[in-house]
C-alpha cells in the first residue's frame, strides 16, 4: 500500500466535493489509481483526461510511489 495525495480541480472538484484527499491504495500505477477512485466516486465522463504526478504531466502507466501527489486533468479551456 502507498499513501497518495489526490488533488481535484474544476468539474472533478465539484463532483467529488473536495479539493484533495489522502488515499491509501494498492494501485501500482496512476491508471490503476484512477480506476479505483472512479469506482468510489463515479467520475463524470469529461472526454480525454490527462494526469500529473508531483506537478508534472506523466502517462497513465507511471508507477506510484509513497507520498506522490496526483492530479487528474480534465480538458482545459484557458484563454
Amino acid at each position: 500500500m502507498v499513501q497518495i495525495r489526490v488533488e481535484y480541480f474544476a468539474i472533478l472538484r465539484e463532483h467529488v466535493g473536495c479539493t484533495h484527499e489522502a488515499v491509501s491504495t494498492p494501485a501500482a500505477t496512476v491508471g490503476d489509481l484512477y480506476a479505483e477512485l472512479d469506482r468510489r466516486h463515479a467520475f463524470p465522463a469529461v472526454g480525454r483526461l490527462k494526469v500529473a504526478v508531483n506537478d508534472e504531466f506523466c502517462d497513465w502507466s507511471t508507477p506510484l510511489r509513497d507520498g506522490d501527489s496526483v492530479v487528474f486533468i480534465p480538458p482545459v479551456a484557458g484563454g
Binding site: 468539474i11 484512477y34 467520475f43 480534465p74 480538458p75 479551456a77
Partner: peptide
C-alpha cells in the same frame, strides 16, 4: 457549465477517459 468538459460528457460512450478520443 465547465467549457470543453460538459460537451465531452455528452459523448461519453465515444471517449473513454483513459484513451485518446
Amino acid at each position: 457549465g465547465w467549457v470543453n468538459c460538459e460537451a465531452c460528457a455528452a459523448h461519453a460512450g465515444e471517449a473513454p477517459p483513459l484513451q485518446s478520443s
